[in-house]
Design a protein around this nucleic acid. Structure first.
Lengths: 364, 364
DNA sequence: CTGAAAGCGCTAACAT
DNA sequence: ATGTTAGCGCTTTCAG
């Protein structure tokens, strides 16, 4: 406290040290002070030192908003994320955070709990001087927004979503499904089924296409009765219950039933496992399974599944956003990630797994 | 586009409408424009209307940072959260978000992936003009920060953490453990055990105390061999592996083994369940279990467990922060939440559960 | 009820 | 190398 100049000592309650204060103390102009903090080369080492020491003594910290206003840059980006994409988004957030922290940026998080909030958050992020760029996740960009946006609009990257006019980043469901199915084929299966979600869901359609393609490429017959879709609305059919009844349906095929099944999501797979167990059957012995998503539960259940590079997606989303901020005129780019196969117990390849004790042997 | 004034039509690329623009168009002073947007009463309805219409035509939006600078308020708060508290924090975040959105505030998220980031994020949030208040989660507040903070420092609320000099919000582990144990007692058990985490962990100690207290109050003998602690370092012993071996240890007691066990966390309980199964035993028939946390997995495993009101905690954290911002001189307050018992299958009370099919019958 | 003017704290162009 | 000055876009007295 005794380091404070006299004229400030009584003002502790509204203590807010500005460059003027430190300029006066250091007997220099505010320009020089500013230069020091902006690492401008043209400052004599001596004065720089002086200024730094005064700043430290007064415990000076630049005022973020004042800087932002003068620089016309907020050093902040917004992420608009549906909160229910839970599994997904924590890791993506980590990727984002690590990346932007390095770049000296902050993150404003707008979590969507209800669709109506999409517009609101989009409007807020689009407000002048709020953020420098926007990351928009897993939702459909409102048409009203698309319409009023133009080349000079605020940079926006779509993640896990698509629109031709905006940069986007998304996971290739088609290729993911192919990889999953191929794995089953390579394991020697020839009677392969698929449990899908609701076809209203874009990823569900893409996964189905990949499945069909892989079978074709592998010269394996696609039996229509082997594909079970769902008309469940809730969560587009990505639920345990849907998986449970779908597997039952497959089991009803009797001896004709598939010996391997590609399931469109881990949650469904968990339901399916349960149907299996109820029927006195086991995975992978009776039915081999490859699922999709690699949610945390997947490891606990020993599910072989397709994993999406979420952390990396977060990082890349930020990279693309910065590219766009630097070069607004660039044509939109679209990158597709390919999920990777995580082999655990449910496909029958990894002999170290026994599903009975699955969760003890899982170590990731 | 044809709504734009002539002098702006060529400037679309740097189009940034300010109150000066709309003042000029509406033939009023900027003061009046400002008043309109701040809902100042003293504006003639006629001119207000005029201004609003011009603003709309020019698609005016206030500049957040300029407002912030002039108002000395950012309308933003920071949340510093360890990312690994995964289960926990998504829900808390929802509570926070819902609350602050109503209040017109934004949220800057600082996710800690490494302890060293704590200081960095704390410093950033403490920077002038960055945020109006801070929510600090589940970590120890660095001493250096505590020291340099004083009455006039930026408002900060501790969540799931404690320091006498700051407002805090945390879950009462002692009471939670009592509730869990009581439930077992009420179910008629008299030989009750506890599987705890590492006693280095504060919540672990508190939970142990609650357990002992409940037994005492219930007139039930506390057999020392019934309490198994762990010296596992990783995650302070909150791991499946630790739970697994702890249960084994309990099972080694033979016929003297407890008929019911309070387990300090859901993850440990899952390991314990597995030990049980391996020994050919079942929960709740052979050993009844009440766990702690109610992580998402808990439902899947049919665990009866203690749930913390996370969403509510998020809301309350924000409420307290705003109280503190309004009244900085108020003495620090500390609120304790009491977790609630979620009855599922593992305690033996809910007959609708069979642990074999646990995850199908869970509906929350 | 409204206009003019003085900041808010900083950056950056312009002098020197 | 450094001081001066004019903004950045808004809020808020202070006059009238």
């Amino acid at each position: 406290m005794e380091g404070l100049p006299i004229y400030l000592q009584n003002y502790r309650c509204l203590l807010t040290v500005t460059i003027y204060d430190i300029a006066r103390e250091a007997k220099v102009g505010i320009g020089t002070v500013s230069r020091v903090f902006n690492n401008h080369p043209n400052v004599k080492p001596k004065t720089r030192e002086k200024i730094l020491s005064v700043a430290k003594r007064l415990n000076y910290h630049p005022h973020a908003y004042a800087q932002g206003l003068a620089r016309r840059r907020t050093n902040t980006i917004a992420a608009i994320i549906p909160f229910f994409t839970n599994y997904f988004f924590v890791e993506i957030l980590q990727g984002i955070q690590d990346k932007i922290t390095n770049l000296g940026y902050d993150l404003i998080l707008y979590g969507i709990n209800h669709p109506r909030e999409i517009d609101e958050y989009l409007r807020k992020s689009d407000q002048r001087g709020r953020v420098d760029g926007i990351l928009f996740f897993s939702s459909k960009l409102p048409e009203s927004f698309v319409e009023r946006s133009h080349v000079d609009s605020k940079p926006l990257i779509l993640v896990d979503a698509f629109h031709e006019r905006f940069d986007s980043l998304h996971v290739d469901n088609f290729k993911g499904a192919i990889a999953a199915t191929n794995h089953l084929i390579q394991l020697g299966h020839t009677n392969i089924g698929m449990i899908n979600a609701n076809l209203n869901n874009t990823p569900a359609r893409e996964r189905k296409d990949g499945f069909a393609d892989a079978l074709k490429a592998g010269g394996i017959e696609l039996r229509p009765q082997n594909i079970v879709e769902t008309n469940v609305i809730k969560n587009d059919g990505y639920t345990r219950e849907a998986g449970y009844s779908s597997m039952k349906q497959l089991l009803n095929l009797g001896t004709d039933r598939p010996t391997a099944v590609f399931i469109a999501s881990d949650v469904q797979a968990i339901g399916a496992l349960s149907a299996l167990r109820q029927a006195g059957l086991r995975a992978p012995e009776d039915v081999a399974i490859v699922a999709y998503d690699d949610i945390e539960l997947a490891a606990h259940f020993g599910l072989t599944t397709m994993r999406q590079p979420m952390y990396r997606m977060g990082e890349l989303a930020v990279e693309k956003l910065f590219q766009r901020m630097e070069n607004p005129a660039m044509p939109p780019s679209h990158v597709h990630f390919v999920p990777t196969l995580i082999v655990r117990g449910s496909c029958g390849m990894n002999k170290n797994y026994s599903l009975a004790e699955e969760f003890l042997q899982t170590s990731d």
